[in-house]
Simulated assay, not measured.
Amino acid sequence: MPYEKNTELPEGVQDVLPPHAQTIYREAYNSAFDEYSSPKDRRGDDSREEVAHKVAWSAVKQSYSKGDDDKWHKD
């Protein structure tokens, strides 16, 4: 399901991403959730939610990198 606010994101996302990265994640997730609503639009057996989470992480990785502290930092 789409997320309206960053506070609705999974705890695992909130715990490691700074606020701006959470916004990137949320917006990418919501967009992918809509775009890949039909199983024919997805590759493999991934669910709509799994695809949306993969897209969201990919979007975050464009501007952030995981540090030695397991948290994500702006490049």
Rank of each mutant, 00 (worst) to 15 (best):
D68M: 14
N6C: 11
R43V: 04
P10W: 02
R42M: 00
P39T: 01
D45N: 12
I24A: 01
D69P: 06
N6Y: 10
A56N: 07
D15Y: 07
G44W: 09
D46C: 12
R48I: 01
R48V: 02
R26D: 11
D69F: 08
Q62D: 12
P18F: 09
S63N: 12
D69T: 08
V51L: 09
P19K: 06
F33W: 13
H53W: 06
S31V: 13
D69I: 06
K61F: 02
S65A: 12
K54I: 03
P19M: 05
D15V: 09
E11K: 15
P39M: 14
Y36T: 00
E8Y: 12
A21H: 00
S37Y: 09
H20T: 10
R42G: 05
R43A: 03
Y29F: 12
L9I: 02
E27K: 14
D75W: 13
S31F: 13
H53L: 02
L17T: 05
S37W: 10
P2M: 15
L9G: 04
S38F: 08
E4K: 15
E27T: 08
I24M: 04
V13S: 02
S31L: 13
R43K: 07
K74L: 15
R42Y: 05
Y25E: 00
W57P: 04
V60G: 08
E50L: 09
K40V: 10
N30M: 08
D41L: 13
Q14S: 08
D34F: 10
V13D: 00
K54W: 06
A28N: 08
E8A: 07
R42I: 02
Y64V: 06
K74N: 13
Y25S: 03
Y64S: 05
N30E: 09
Y64P: 00
D46S: 12
K54C: 06
P18G: 07
A21Y: 01
I24D: 05
R26P: 03
S63Q: 10
E8D: 14
P39I: 11
Y29V: 04
R48D: 00
A56F: 10
D75E: 14
A59R: 04
Y3E: 04
V51S: 03
L17Q: 04
Y36P: 01
R43P: 00
T23K: 10
E50K: 10
Y64K: 02
D68Q: 14
A52T: 01
